[in-house]
């Protein structure tokens, strides 16, 4: 577990931190290249994360692809086998399903089957709350956490976004990098310059507390921290664990926190049913049962496609208010 996000110095948005990680790695390592729909030219992707990269590194290293996810992720598999380090952007995480076979059948199993490493990264802009409807709001991380052979990361802060992306690019395995698109421009924070790495597989205590633990990741970290502030007013001292990596899971950090607080709420934007929170809750039940003072509780999206209309999407999604209420219930148990 590492916790220091740095203070002082320059601040970047979450989006700028990702862009910086890409340029640091492309500068350092000729094997790193970027590909995906609309990532090249002067355009720089649907969210403009790769803007400027084509001008700086040329079309050879920043490739526009046709709308063919199964094909271009499969192509990244072959590039990776031949020693390149492709960083693939799927335009929205929702469209990652189109590439499913190339990811979960080929990339995920390859090293185990015959020793061929697939060191790619797929960047997947995920998450909702921004009125984008069922096909531009998804959090499909559980599909990939369920798949042996992949690594899955989901940073919540600019520093982690940079540090984890650099680690992902240097990792010799296929890594799916879920970017929380509601954070792109709304969150700003200190980000170390240059080659800053955050290790894959390390959770972070984002807030220290003694009464209750919230385990979360991605955009819900910010909701959890906001809820913790409100709870503090009433003397409820909340610890917040930011998982940062979803596979491999840093169970030790979670268990250590639960051992100290005895109460735990797991929160994510993805629907709750068979989500990452189910695995976290199961590990706590198996390995920290003796420390629990209340049932492990989960808060996630409802088990429905993500609706578009504001009152429906708000009903679907966890937020600070719902987290606060869930914690109060836990504390009162």
């Amino acid at each position: 577990m590492s916790g220091d996000q740095g203070t002082g110095g320059r601040e970047l948005t979450y989006l700028e931190a990702i862009a910086e990680a890409l340029s640091v790695e492309m500068e350092r390592d000729e094997r790193v290249l970027v590909l995906g729909e609309d990532v090249g030219g002067t355009f720089g992707g649907a969210f403009k994360v790769t803007k400027g990269l084509a001008e700086r590194f040329g079309d050879r290293r920043v490739m526009n692809t046709p709308i063919a996810e199964l094909g271009f992720v499969g192509m990244a598999n072959g590039m990776a086998l031949m020693g390149l380090r492709p960083v693939v952007e799927v335009q929205f995480a929702d469209f990652i399903s189109t590439a499913f076979d190339s990811i979960v059948q080929f990339a995920a199993t390859n090293h185990y089957r015959w020793g061929g490493a697939i060191p790619w990264v797929i960047r997947a802009p995920s998450d909702g709350g921004i009125r984008s409807g069922p096909f531009h709001s998804q959090n499909p991380e559980a599909w990939f956490v369920h798949t042996p052979g992949l690594k899955v990361v989901a940073p919540a802060t600019p520093a982690d976004a940079k540090g984890l992306l650099i680690s992902a690019i240097r990792d010799d395995n296929p890594v799916i990098f879920f970017e929380a698109k509601p954070l792109y421009r709304s969150v700003r924070g200190p980000v170390p310059e240059g080659e800053y790495l955050v290790p894959i597989g390390d959770a972070r205590i984002a807030r220290r507390g003694s009464d209750v633990t919230i385990v979360t990741y991605g955009s819900q970290l910010h909701e959890a921290l906001a809820a913790a502030e409100r709870l503090a007013v009433d003397g409820i001292d909340t610890e917040v664990v930011d998982l940062r990596t979803l596979k491999p899971l840093d169970v030790d950090t979670v268990l250590d926190s639960v051992a100290r607080t005895g109460r735990v709420l797991v929160v994510h934007s993805a629907n709750r049913n068979a989500g990452v929170g189910a695995e976290v809750a199961a590990r706590i039940a198996e390995e920290a049962f003796m420390w629990l003072d209340a049932p492990v509780t989960r808060l996630g999206g409802l088990d429905i496609p993500i609706p578009f209309s504001p009152p429906l999407e708000d009903a679907y999604r966890p937020d600070a208010t719902k987290i606060e209420a869930a914690v109060r219930k836990l504390v009162a148990f």
């Binding site: 009125r131 409807g133 069922p134 096909f135 578009f308 009152p311």
Partner: peptide
Amino acid sequence: RGRDANLHG
């Protein structure tokens, strides 16, 4: 019925 966005659904 508010489920899908813009011209989808």
